[in-house]
Design a protein around this nucleic acid. Structure first.
Lengths: 197, 197, 197, 197
DNA sequence: CATGAATGAGTATTCATTCAT
DNA sequence: AATGAATGAATACTCATTCAT
């Protein structure tokens, strides 16, 4: 059904779209840009995707899936690593993934609402899924006394926003993109905040 | 030069633009939407602004100025309030401002990059200014031992990103928008991070 | 509200559209053709009409209204002309109208179903209105003994189809377009059919 | 030359095309629709037909041939049936054919002019052929005193248009499609027109 | 000051047709 | 014979901006 040739072309288009979106943003990017980068004709694009939003969705949903897939549940067994180490390892995987896919970081975290209602809905779904997932994690953490008390929604909003911005800035070269340093910075923030004690 | 009448009309247009941008986003918003909301003709818009980007710039630069203006330097004199209280007071003023101008929060923090190179540059300038301003504050804080050590750019990226997201979520109704609760949440984060001790 | 200038331009566009539709048919006609014939820019068209279908609708509904408006009810008063004369006069007015607007005859009677669902609906509404109107007339005629008995729907289908085709052929030059001859031909058909007695 | 297998496939494609054209109209119908209904690949279509217009032509010319073939010349021999009966029999055969092929009625009588110049020409040729054929019949009828006098082109235009419309309406369900009733309606019209005597 | 008619560049999308496999 | 991937011409529609009145 999906011949290897077809699969290859699809992948080519996805990569081209990713690069174009990352460079010019979703709105400014044209289907023409994408096919030109692929060296195929305009119509070819529509053999693989319904429209511009469809590629965007494919790109973002795949990226979010990989992000989610890189996060492991914190194990509490006697022979498991300390929770804080597991958390750091999760963070490290996410950071690595992000640094490996700078384009996707720009796309997934830099595409604003309000451009296209259909796009909005799509992004909202992704964020909601991510949020729910993280909320459950946090809830468990609180129950186990690993996470301090407080309104989880507020804590999450700040934490996710902070991580997003850090990754975005790293990708844009505004802050150093050394993975270890990034992970440390986040861990420090999560452990101690910003102020001296 | 600027008759009061002219000033009034300009302000009307600015408010209309703010509302339209907040509702539909910069890209989807049309000059037509703006003038329709004002009850003036298409051409009138161009008597007050160079183009669409010009209103956007006026809106955002004014907002950033007000944000910056609401922040007071931390005083260390013997009869000054404790630094932490001053920090909280600053935060409170920013949060109040943001909750008073939900539209501007959406616009300033929710406008996508990549829509228009000129717009990108404009937004980048504002963020750079904000970042520089905060960096100086942080630097002072570190020198005085009020802020823990660490790479300030990383710390700032996380803190600013976290605050932005929190304000955005509050404005969008994703998290409760009680000002006191928001301030507390940020203060807690700055003081203790997320993890239990 | 509708300035005379605006009204003029609208009329120009309507006439251009009518000519283009008549020459190339609804499908083959492009908005470009229409504006080119008017010497205005592409966008101007959309200041006056929602889209291609909108002009078509305006054209056809106006034409049907004029056709309907040219038909007078048959008067039966003592001092009224004989019904057959009144019928002939009605027919003559319709034929005159049609010969004055050959383009509209082509458009109204030569645009097929199946091109565009929205178009279909529009045409169907017009035909339904015409049919209802004629049916009532026929019903009255039967009651008064002026029209022979029989299934009115079938009689109408044949009569309307016959008249339509005659007008179309006259407009296309397939049959002579002398108005008097056309009226006579239809009257003869209505009175005696085709076969000798 | 034409293997039975090839012939079979061709027939499949023709029927699929007929159904698709009847459902969506010539313009809206796509080659894709046709091959999809056949379960063959896009390219296969072009192994049997030059292009879209070619199938249309094959369909319509075949249908017109069958219509023409169902009409017998009026015999005048002493032992022949009365001419009026022969006329009715011809009519009955045409109506039966039409009701057996509702799709073809829609296609042949319901395809718009102006879609494609080549298609226009093709349809015009068919109508011209039908018209010539009928004209000769009518001429004979007039010579024999079976048909009343008058301009044959006008009479034909009305009669053909009336029959076409009746068949179309029957096929579309706008009028009852009982074959006997349809034939009677046409015969009545040909014999007596519409008005009472 | 204000108007609003006019402009025209810019883009997503469809689909008949070809051709290498 | 058959496939189906690829082509690319063709078109409707939007909207920021200008300018004559």
């Amino acid at each position: 059904m999906t011949s290897p040739r077809r699969e290859l072309r699809r992948r080519q288009l996805l990569e081209a779209a990713r690069d174009v979106f990352a460079e010019k943003g979703y709105v400014a990017a044209t289907v023409d840009d994408v096919v030109a980068r692929c060296g195929v004709a305009r119509g070819t694009f529509y053999l693989y995707f319904d429209d511009k939003l469809d590629v965007f969705g494919a790109l973002v949903s795949d990226f979010f899936a990989r992000v989610a897939g890189s996060i492991r549940s914190i194990e509490l067994g006697a022979d498991a690593a300390p929770p804080r180490e597991q958390l750091r390892a999760n963070l490290a995987r996410v950071v690595t993934l992000a640094m490996d896919e700078p384009g996707m970081v720009k796309i997934a975290f830099g595409t604003a609402f309000g451009v296209d209602p259909a796009l909005d809905e799509r992004l909202a779904r992704f964020y909601a899924a991510l949020s729910t997932f993280m909320d459950e994690t946090l809830q468990t953490g609180q129950r186990l006394g690993l996470v301090r008390g407080g309104d989880r929604r507020l804590m999450l909003s700040i934490a996710i926003g902070g991580l997003q911005q850090l990754l975005r800035d790293a990708v844009d070269g505004h802050v150093p993109s050394d993975e270890h340093a990034l992970v440390d910075a986040v861990m420090d923030f999560l452990q101690s905040g910003l102020l001296a004690h």
